[in-house]
């Protein structure tokens, strides 16, 4: 049961983690994140990095779609802008990776603002179509602006380096990806404790009355696009440092749908939802793949037979969660927490 949580001032009441139990869990999580690369193998390390990159991008999309209510299918293309920016800077200028990532985020948010311009007039599905158009155009630019992007064959870039030490393996690149992910998640959570985050939610819930409260719609919609695509740009930059080969096919439209599915499964308008959604969408296919692998010694044809089944199970799980808990995994998590707040008593 949850006891002893009385607050003495407003600052404590507004804290992100407001109970000692929560803080203890966060310390445990931080410790796990610090120890992880030393105990995990290459494969686990690879998966963890991929999950973290997806978390950054999903959180960005959640700010735009989940919190501001503007449906976008351009997230992968914005990631592409970030990835190409990092690759070009790393190849031609050799600037430090942190600066490259910031510039990548900035470049992506500039593109995002331009793509977001129609959002004052069009909403919902229409805006989604407009952003698909933008991602098709960006794909075309990646594939055909050969002098800058290397055309269809793409770019191969050198690894990131800290003090002359090159980060090549997933367990090494992890030290860039993990801290940046953590910082960006805290940033997103903080955003919704202030007037800017509240304005976003107001626009989502009722844009007309938001205007009467003094919220300038165009400015805040574009700001949401800018922040969201900044996250995408940084995620794309991290992706570039992780894979180090970028082609126009690295960021297909399917990837944007992946992020949209992640926030829907995880929980729209919840930072935790974005995290859970990204973890679910990245890990479940891998876990299913592992299960098929386990079966193969017993059943030689497992891989051939079960591969399509795996995809069907994945799709089925998504549908199951949508029906079972439309508010996403985050709501399931909140229900579990609520249960333990009162345990051993029942509601």
């Amino acid at each position: 049961m949850r006891i002893g949580t009385a607050k003495e001032n407003y600052l404590h009441d507004a804290a992100l983690f407001d109970t000692n139990v929560q803080r203890a869990w966060m310390v445990a999580l931080a410790a796990a994140l610090l120890v992880l690369p030393f105990i995990s193998g290459q494969y686990i390390g690879y998966l963890v990095c991929l999950v973290l990159i997806n978390i950054v991008s999903t959180t960005g999309l959640n700010i735009l779609t989940g919190f501001t209510g503007l449906v976008s299918l351009g997230q992968a293309a914005f990631m592409g802008v970030g990835a190409y920016t990092v690759a070009i800077l790393e190849i031609n200028a050799g600037t430090p990776f942190l600066l490259n990532l910031l510039i990548a985020g900035g470049a992506a948010s500039l593109v995002g603002v331009v793509v977001g311009l129609p959002s004052l007039r069009v909403k919902g599905l229409y805006l989604a179509i407009a952003t698909i158009a933008a991602s098709v155009i960006l794909h075309f630019v990646f594939a055909n602006w050969t002098s800058v992007t290397g055309g269809v064959s793409g770019l191969t870039m050198p690894p990131a380096s800290i003090f002359g030490f090159e980060l090549v393996q997933p367990n090494q690149v992890y030290w860039i990806i993990m801290p940046i992910t953590v910082v960006m998640l805290f940033g997103a959570a903080n955003l919704f404790r202030t007037r800017i985050g509240r304005a976003f939610i107001a626009i989502r819930d009722r844009d007309i009355s938001a205007e009467v409260l003094g919220i300038r719609l165009l400015r805040y919609k574009l700001l949401s696009f800018a922040i969201s695509s900044f996250y995408a740009g940084v995620a794309g930059g991290l992706w570039a440092y992780f894979f180090r080969v970028i082609t126009p096919e690295s960021f297909p439209l399917m990837m944007s749908i992946f992020f949209l599915a992640a926030i829907i499964v995880g929980g729209m308008g919840s930072i935790l939802g974005g995290i859970l959604g990204a973890v679910f969408m990245t890990m479940v296919p891998e876990i299913l793949k592992m299960m098929v692998g386990v079966l193969s010694p017993i059943w030689p044809d497992a891989v051939a037979v079960m591969s399509p089944v795996r995809i069907i199970v994945f799709g089925g799980l998504i549908i199951f969660f949508l029906i079972f808990e439309p508010d996403g995994l985050a709501e399931i998590w909140r229900n579990i927490r609520r249960f333990f707040h009162l345990w051993p008593f029942r509601t």
Binding site: A188, L191, T194, R195, I196, R198, A199, A202, L213, L223
Partner: peptide, 15 residues
Amino acid sequence: LGRHAHLKTNVLDAL
């Protein structure tokens, strides 16, 4: 939210 127009917090402060 009512106070929105009178607050000055910008994006960087907020993040």
